[in-house]
Design a protein around this nucleic acid. Structure first.
Lengths: 236, 236
DNA sequence: TTGTTTAATTGTACCGGTACAATTATACTT
DNA sequence: AAGTATAATTGTACCGGTACAATTAAACAA
């Protein structure tokens, strides 16, 4: 692991351990430099990472402070790798409905940047938080990149598997959000009524080299899905 | 304006002018260094800014490439300053319903980190894109920070005013998303029916020094609001 | 042709430095 | 006490450098 990542983790851990709150001040840069025995730019890089994550904010001439939202029960939309990290002590489970290999339809192929004759894995599952329905997910993985999946892998975290076993790293993703009503079938999946409100999120996940490898459509149960986004500055 | 910001703008402009598409390669770092006559770290900083904005992605050993989503009609959730920038050629207008000074209730005070006896501006408006209802907004500004507002300012962009006239700069914001049904009153505001689906977004905007200055509640018209989020890497 | 090794390309990590602007604390007025 | 100039604190912009890992291209072998 890179130095600046490691340091970022340690600082975040320190904040949690000390139970620092919104506005609390962290040690100054120079102290951190000697504390971790690295150069200024490495510390700066670690802090920048934490700033992007929404953990701290920095104020020139003043110091480095803890930033923290204080609404429990909201999931971060950006725990790109599943929701694991932002769930706290809540338990995430999945019902796997389908894992199969097939040829994508035109829309899926388009979103994955492949041809309709290239194969994809189709995964369908319903996800629960503490036993309550969170969402229904239908996702497609490019088989050339993810050559093998099974129900065990899919029941756990697909992203963990892809990263550790296959050694591919996720680069960036485009998410499309939309509010709509549920169809009859969708309502059945979520234990709701037809025409009930829902949040639909389509996401295209790309590898670091820019190639799409996963296109997923998620419909959220409106009552059990609340999201928080911590945005930074005018430039985001 | 800072060098690296300026350069970031120029590169983005270059991409637009040349109509570069997803995956197209930009000049290599070294060439950019000489092109803009700055050091490597300044170029790096500019590129990092563009990467965060979702304009490019960088691949070590390979080059710098254009990243671009291609779905028209989706607004970026992160044009923190109103939606101006992501609207393209569509026209944003507002009906101002209320601009008044009052004492906040407990909830508003809590979110703004002030007391119930401190004054706030209350602004209520309905916003339209190309004449169609986009959302209903109710927002509260800390009067100590934004000492004056009127209907003209509010009809235009409040954020532009706050930044240019008052010289305060927006630092970061926490957004809370939730899907729900509309109440009768809300439905009236948006020209919809009671119980129709909606996306509610509460946002707390902070200055660079971490102080909240604006708390807003927006309810979106489900048919006219589609959002895109361009997320970066595992660390977001 | 197809795979394999080697070399060139290219962005990133990390170092260490100077200058400076924003904030905060201090000393000094009035 | 209350404002005002002054100095100390502190993060950020920007420079220039070395080392290296990931990618790609070139050379080579089967």
């Amino acid at each position: 692991m890179l130095k600046y990542q490691q340091i970022a983790n340690e600082i975040e851990q320190y904040i949690n351990e000390q139970q620092l709150k919104q506005g609390d001040k962290l040690p100054v840069l120079e102290q951190m430099m000697s504390q971790y025995a690295v150069s200024k730019s490495t510390i700066t890089k670690a802090l920048e990472l934490l700033e992007r994550k929404g953990v701290i904010f920095q104020l020139r001439g003043s110091g480095i402070f803890v930033r923290r939202h204080n609404r429990p029960g909201y999931m971060s939309l950006f725990s790109t790798q599943g929701f694991k990290s932002s769930l706290g002590d809540r338990v995430l489970t999945s019902d796997v409905i389908d894992v199969s290999v097939l040829k994508p339809d035109a829309l899926v192929a388009e979103n994955l940047g492949i041809g309709v004759s290239d194969e994809v894995y189709r995964v369908e599952r319903v996800r629960y938080v503490d036993g309550e329905v969170l969402c229904h997910e239908e996702s497609y993985y490019v088989k050339a990149i993810v050559p093998y999946l099974n129900r065990e892998i899919v029941a756990d975290s697909i992203f963990d598997y892809v990263q550790s076993a296959l050694g591919v790293t996720i680069g960036f993703s485009d998410m499309y959000l939309q509010v709509d009503r549920l169809s009859e079938v969708e309502a059945g999946n979520l234990g709701l009524q037809e025409n009930d409100p829902t949040l639909r999120i389509e996401t295209i996940f790309h590898l670091t080299n820019g190639k799409p490898f996963d296109y997923s459509r998620i419909t959220y149960h409106y009552a059990h899905s609340q999201f928080v986004i911590q945005a930074n500055g005018p430039y985001m």
